[in-house]
Nucleic acid binder design. Structure first.
Length: 494
RNA sequence: GAUCCCAUCGUCCAGUCUGGUCAGGACACAGGCCUUUCAAGCCUGUGACACGGGUUCAAAUCCCGUUGGGAUCGCCA
């Protein structure tokens, strides 16, 4: 009797995300976690986080924190697993060794597995010989019929699965249909290693059964090995969960997405100033489609609409550009004060702000408002908005060439003087001052506007000049203009 | 090498299951409008059914083959 059945006797949806804590969580793994989660939430099922820490050599204690951080950042919670517990624990495979040992002994007793004492040297030798002959490198099943007596805990032996030598094994992928493999192409895989830890293939089958997992979502890279899992499930006589193999995520060169393509760890997207909502939205659409033209939708809407039918089978290229665009859409949905809240940590990191600064919240919100629609990522602020906090230390080179002619220095000084004399520092007064002066000289307003922009911000592009000057404040603007005029006189020759 | 998976604009997706509308949308790109610049916004444009056979009145869609891409073949997961 299952622990989790509804009162119709139907299996409850239970999915698992089963990362291996060996490094920073990769977007591919996170996408897998996301699809698991969306499916479970859509069907009011349970999400189990299980830690596959059976590789003691590659274990990285920081990885687990990074994984949990990444999941929580995206808003993916789990109903059972580390820090929340559950009825099917422990959720760390390293704490379940006795379970795997018990099942391994059972298989040996049933004649479905055997102990093997072949050395790694011998295994290498055998495989190399086969490889040289152009044959698939496999174990030669030397110990298969030897009847070696041992125990899963014995460091001198491993436990191997007795894969059927003939016939076919087939499985049903919910997206691709029947897939079948010739048993002759399978190796007698190791189930328990000599350090008494289970291999991935063994642990995953035992745990998916024991934890009553109903649907297995994982990357296609697991598909070729899934036949072995079926053999194992059958050896135990266990029901096989439904399997869904998710298409791979590729880099722009169509190779599996990896570090050399740029940011791939979820933490790097966090640092770059990508919003979790945007990341979730983007990742959802990478391999799944709502079947209409909806592109921007929130989690609730996605959960409501997520289903197996919309999942793709072909691999997709991770388009950083489109993610940035989507992020800009989400940035625009924020109120100025929400944006300020998110930008502040970056300001502090860049030394634009100190905790005890007297810069007002109101000032920050005005900066947020004026910059909001030109940010794609929070980090764009670093180059686009520096001048709101720091004096320009240099001027944009192209801008200098175009706008900082020697004759301009006196014009800047003149406008600075007129600014200083202004009683009101509002858009109307500033604009009138600039336009009237341009008119007096018989010049287009742009001839005055561009040098002022460059003088006050150091940049040749940016938000509306007059609004920008209001925010900066009269004193700072006048000071920066005089400084720029002096700079022109010092640096620009006739 | 063997096995498995995949194949629509440069990219992400729709259309394929259930053959029949100029193959639709988004990102990117190009041009235009707006404008003090940039961005945004609006308008327009460039751009794809990998190839070859078959089935059919009709094929992106069904079947077969070819080619191409990817993954997997560990006491890693």
């Amino acid at each position: 009797m299952r622990k989790y059945e509804n009162n119709l006797g139907e299996k409850m949806v239970r999915v698992r995300f089963a990362p291996s804590p060996t490094g920073l969580p990769h977007v591919g793994n996170i996408r897998t976690a996301l699809f698991n989660w969306l499916f479970a939430r859509h069907h009011a099922g349970k999400v189990i986080l299980r830690i596959e820490d059976t590789d003691r050599e590659r274990f990285d204690p920081e990885a687990l924190d990074a994984i949990m951080f990444g999941l929580r950042w995206l808003g993916l919670d789990w109903d059972e697993g580390p820090e929340v517990g559950g009825l099917f624990g422990p959720y760390f495979q390293s704490e379940r060794l006795h379970i795997y040992h018990k099942f391994a002994r059972e298989l040996v007793e049933k004649g479905k597995a055997y102990y093997c004492n072949c050395s790694t040297e011998r295994l290498d030798l055998v495989r190399n010989e086969l490889r040289e002959k152009g044959l698939p490198p496999m174990y030669d099943r030397h110990c298969r019929e030897l009847g070696i007596d041992s125990d899963p805990t014995d460091p001198n032996t491993v436990v191997r699965l007795k894969v059927p030598l003939w016939g076919k094994t087939s499985l049903r992928d919910e997206l691709r249909g029947e897939i079948s493999f010739d048993n002759s192409t399978f190796d007698d895989i190791v189930l328990i290693k000599s350090d008494s830890f289970p291999t991935y293939h063994f642990a995953v089958v035992c745990d998916d059964h024991l934890m009553e997992i109903s649907h297995i979502f994982r990357g296609v890279e697991w598909l070729p090995g899934a036949g072995k899992h079926v053999i194992l499930f059958n050896a135990f006589g266990w029901e096989i969960p439904k399997m869904i193999h998710l298409p791979m995520i590729l880099g722009p060169d169509r190779a599996k997405l990896s570090k050399r393509h740029g940011a791939t760890a979820i933490t790097e997207f966090v640092k770059a100033g990508i919003m979790p909502q945007a990341m979730l939205n983007f990742l959802t659409l990478l391999g799944w489609s709502p079947k209409d033209d909806t592109e921007i939708f929130d989690v609730e809407e996605i959960i409501k609409r997520f289903d197996l039918h919309g999942i793709n089978t072909s691999p997709s290229v991770f388009d950083f550009e489109k993610l940035n665009w989507m992020n800009s859409e989400y940035i625009r949905k924020l109120t100025p004060s929400e944006l300020t809240k998110r930008l502040k940590p970056y300001y502090i990191k860049w030394d634009w702000l100190k905790d005890d600064d007297e810069i007002s919240e109101e000032y920050l919100n005005r900066v947020s408002k004026i910059m909001q629609e030109r940010l794609r990522k929070f980090t764009d602020m670093k180059s686009l908005g520096r001048f709101f906090f720091m004096e320009p230390e240099e001027y944009d080179q192209k801008g200098v060439k175009k706008n900082f002619k020697p004759i301009v220095a006196d014009r800047i000084l003149e406008v600075a003087q007129r600014f200083e004399n202004l009683e009101k520092w509002d858009e109307e007064s500033i604009e009138n001052t600039v336009r009237e002066y341009a008119k007096q000289l018989g010049l287009g307003a742009g001839k005055i506007i561009h040098p002022i922009r460059l003088a006050s911000s150091g940049l040749r592009m940016g938000p509306s000049l007059f609004e920008m000057l209001i925010i900066l404040g009269k004193d700072r603007v006048v000071k920066r203009m005089r400084k720029a005029a002096a700079w022109i006189k010092d640096n620009i020759m006739e």
